[in-house]
Structure formats: structure tokens, C-alpha cells
């Protein structure tokens, strides 16, 4: 059964979309017209350029409302979804004890030249994020946060030496796709050394989606706003799956 959909404003199938962008031209009637023509070439109808503002010499910022033309068939859409139950701190600890009868060993860090620890710290540090305890706080998890700018080789060696169950990789800087480069480098390194299947591999960061992580060869990916307990839930779920 087909399910055609398009954006919703205040009436079903009105296709209403809001856009904002900058053009490298001086503001004026021609600039406004250029914005309208540009949006029409993106296949929109009933375009109204509601706001145009000079933001520098030769640059104008626009806000535009327009009606989108295409409909898509929702019934044909598939996405890579993570399948796991979000459990709480106590349930997770109990499950780890029951399944492994030893602590779950997790090593994490920010790889490559990325110096940001905000993501990995939110997940791993004792304190956690948004009132949700970090992995270091879990009695059944041995969590080692290596910090930032960890060379991939060092990360792998550490995981081998400490018999890790899982490797958590954070990437915040995405300029020039540096996050993709770093994440790929780690996978290649593990592949080369025949270690890929030894570990659960998780990627996280503001611009990381589960889909991207899967595409790159990771077991899961976590985007912004992820709670430590979500990561821990996924880890124990996967461990149980593997054991079965």
C-alpha cells in the first residue's frame, strides 16, 4: 500500500518548507529575485522571500518559505535502526554480571588530531551527562577513557593489552570530513591485524549517525544528546546477542 507524503505546514500535503541561506551578492531587488530563482531551481513552488538582510559587503542572508513539489512513498523507506531496549543503570549492571560474570571492559577516546573530549567525557566520565551516570560509574564496567588525540594504533594496542570488549571512538571535528578519515583509519587498522571481530566498535559525535557508522563498518553510531545508559544498553544487548 502506497503512502505518499510531503512536508506539512498547516494543511496536509501543502508541502510547506522554510529555508535560509546566504548568497554572495549585495542586497537589493536583484538579490531578492536571485534568491527566488535559485529556490525555484530547487523545485519549489509559491516561493516567498520573506526576509533579506545584508550581512557583509557583497553578502545577503535570505529567509524563504516555499511549497515543495515532490511526494515520496513512505512505504518504501527503510532506515538502519538500532534495535535495543534502553535500560537503566541497575538493570544493565545486573545483566552484565549475569551474562559475563566479569566486568565489561570498555576503552574509549577521541582518535586522530581531534582534541575534543566533550563527547567521550559525556559518555565515559563518572559524572555522565544530563543526570545519567557515565560508564566509569558502572560497577560492572571497567571503563578507560584515554582522552583526545589518540593515534589509532595506540588505541588498538591498548584494547589488545587490556582485553577490551568494546572500543568507543568519539569524533567532534568534521571539517573536510576528517571524522570519516579517522574512523576509516581505525577500521582498516583492525582489519589488517585481523582484530575487527574481537571488539564491539562504537562511534559517536555530533555529526555521527547510526547509518554512517554502519556504513563505515562500525557496530553502532550515536549522535548528539546520547546518554551513557543508551550506550551501555546497546553494549550489553550486543554482548548477549554474540554469546547466543
Amino acid at each position: 500500500m502506497k503512502e505518499p507524503i510531503k512536508p506539512y505546514g498547516d494543511t496536509l500535503n501543502d508541502g510547506m518548507v522554510q529555508l535560509s541561506f546566504t548568497l554572495p551578492v549585495e542586497n537589493g531587488p536583484r538579490a531578492m529575485k536571485a534568491a527566488e530563482v535559485y529556490v525555484s531551481q530547487l523545485n519549489f513552488n509559491k516561493i516567498s522571500v520573506v526576509h533579506a538582510q545584508k550581512i557583509s559587503d557583497g553578502f545577503t542572508y535570505f529567509m524563504v518559505y516555499a511549497e515543495a513539489n515532490p511526494s515520496i512513498d513512505y512505504s518504501t523507506i527503510e532506515a538502519t535502526e538500532m534495535e535495543f531496549e534502553h535500560m537503566d543503570f541497575y538493570t544493565i549492571n545486573a545483566l552484565i554480571k549475569e551474562t559475563l560474570n566479569r566486568p565489561l571492559r570498555v576503552v574509549g577516546g577521541t582518535i586522530g588530531n581531534d582534541a575534543h573530549t566533550v563527547g567521550i567525557d559525556a559518555i565515559m566520565n563518572m559524572k555522565g551527562y544530563n543526570q545519567d551516570y557515565g560508564l566509569e560509574r558502572y560497577p560492572e564496567i571497567d571503563a578507560d577513557n584515554l582522552g583526545s588525540q589518540i593515534p589509532c594504533q595506540e588505541m588498538v594496542e591498548y584494547a589488545v593489552r587490556h582485553h577490551a570488549d568494546a572500543i568507543l571512538v568519539s569524533q567532534t571535528v568534521t571539517q573536510k570530513d576528517s571524522h570519516i578519515l579517522h574512523l576509516t583509519e581505525l577500521i582498516d587498522l583492525l582489519d589488517k591485524q585481523g582484530l575487527r571481530d574481537q571488539y564491539l566498535l562504537l562511534a559517536g559525535g555530533a555529526k555521527i549517525s547510526h547509518e554512517l557508522a554502519i556504513k563505515l563498518g562500525y557496530d553502532a553510531g550515536f549522535g548528539p544528546g546520547t546518554l551513557p545508559s543508551q550506550v551501555a544498553s546497546l553494549l550489553i544487548t550486543k554482548i548477549i546477542e554474540r554469546a547466543a
Binding site: S20, F21, T22, I55, S56, F59, Y61, T174, Q175, A206, K207, P224
Partner: peptide, 9 residues
Amino acid sequence: EALHTPLMQ
């Protein structure tokens, strides 16, 4: 802030 280095707009 949580997304990218700032765009001009």
C-alpha cells in the same frame, strides 16, 4: 554551536 564551525549567517 553543537553542529559545525559557524557559517556567516
